[in-house]
Simulated assay, not measured.
Amino acid sequence: MARRALITGVTGQDGAYLARLLLDKGYEVYGAIRRAASQTLPRLRELGIADAIRPVTLELNEFSNLLRALEQVRPDEVYNLAAQSFVHTSFEQPIYTGDVGALGVTRVLEAIRAVNPAIRFYQASTSELFGKAQTMPQSERTPFYPRSPYAVAKLYAHWITVNYRESYDLHASAGILFNHESPLRGPEFITRKVTLALARIRHGQQDVLEVGNVEAQRDWGFAGDYVEGMWRMLQQPQAADYVLATGRAYSVGRFIELAADALGFSIGWEGTGKATRGIDRRSGRVLVTINPIHYRPAEVDLLVGDFSKAKERLGWQPTVALPDLVAMMAEADDRRVRDGRLML
């Protein structure tokens, strides 16, 4: 009999790639979808798997709904990828962010404990837990220092996962994933905002790209690699927490340069701080400006991960280098803009 997996957040980037991976492995895949979510499922359709996913209506803030969903699906594995996942938005909606991102995870764990404690559970933790990082690079042993309501909610979710593992012997693992991107990333995120804006500029549909702190540095990998790590965590005899990362950090400015290169521009920087501008060396045109509205109230300056535990125990490591990832995203957005086919 095929194994069954329930994925919350299946309509997002990670959910789509994970669903494809599990289908390829012969799973029956159930996708938890909020009633308010788009029913067109653009990311799943982009991967050609929308009709293979079995939809389940689910709200993380409704415990009775969670119970019924687990009783209906009877999954072997639950991957909780759902959250209010935009850091900037979390400062504007801290209570909602906490309810879904923190208490929502507790509800899922309680439902698993009530319906079938043998269900294996994956919680999507985040490198934002490290925030004002205390050591470089960050590993599973690095102290947490969250710097946004999003990260604080994720901190609660992380520790409640550990607590249920230790208190009730659940097979509950948390993946502390550093930034992972793809052509399926939403345009609200800086990486996709960059590639989409530069593609629009190339085709005369936008004048300039506005960004915030171009000095911030992140450890960026490919989402398709990271969902493989999620699956491997739930195949282990014992549950544990793992950092997934590339071990290399690049600035937002460098990401912009790589995207510009992929689209036929060549960015040079002028000015400092909020007066920084990105100039196309070939045309002299201003392509990038700084808008302070995009700065975070509490900035996270540098995150870079140590994935040695995942490499040793899971046999996992990243396969896509940042220049190749950026080119993949830029080329996908260039095709979408050129063809008038903007998904997401």
Rank of each mutant, 00 (worst) to 15 (best):
E299D: 11
D280F: 07
V326R: 08
R45Y: 09
F189L: 00
R192V: 04
L184N: 01
L18H: 02
Q217R: 14
T97I: 01
E46I: 05
L23V: 13
Q123N: 15
L66Q: 02
A82E: 04
V304L: 09
G268R: 12
S85D: 11
V78K: 04
K274F: 14
L47K: 06
V211K: 03
A2L: 02
L209C: 10
A298N: 14
I201L: 06
A153M: 12
L103N: 12
A332K: 00
F222P: 01
T57V: 15
L209D: 07
T161M: 09
A52H: 11
Q205A: 14
L198P: 05
S125V: 03
D334A: 05
I176H: 03
L344T: 07
V208I: 15
V286M: 01
V208P: 08
V87W: 07
L41I: 05
D99A: 11
E188A: 15
A19F: 03
D207I: 04
R185I: 00
V300C: 12
T142S: 15
I267G: 01
A240E: 00
A69D: 01
R20M: 08
I290H: 04
T135M: 08
E77M: 11
R285D: 10
L234M: 14
G186R: 07
S90D: 04
S139K: 10
L177C: 05
Q238M: 06
L263V: 10
T272L: 11
E59K: 03
L67Y: 00
L184W: 00
A332S: 03
F265S: 08
R285A: 13
M136I: 15
S127N: 05
P297I: 12
G278F: 07
L314E: 10
F121S: 04
G15S: 13
G229Y: 06
I176D: 01
R341H: 04
A157N: 08
V208M: 12
Q138D: 00
L303N: 02
Q217T: 13
V115G: 02
L314P: 07
N61C: 13
E128V: 10
N179M: 15
F144H: 14
L177M: 06
N179D: 15
L287S: 06
G186L: 10
T246G: 06
E270G: 08
Y27W: 11
G204S: 10
R141K: 15
E110C: 09
I293H: 11
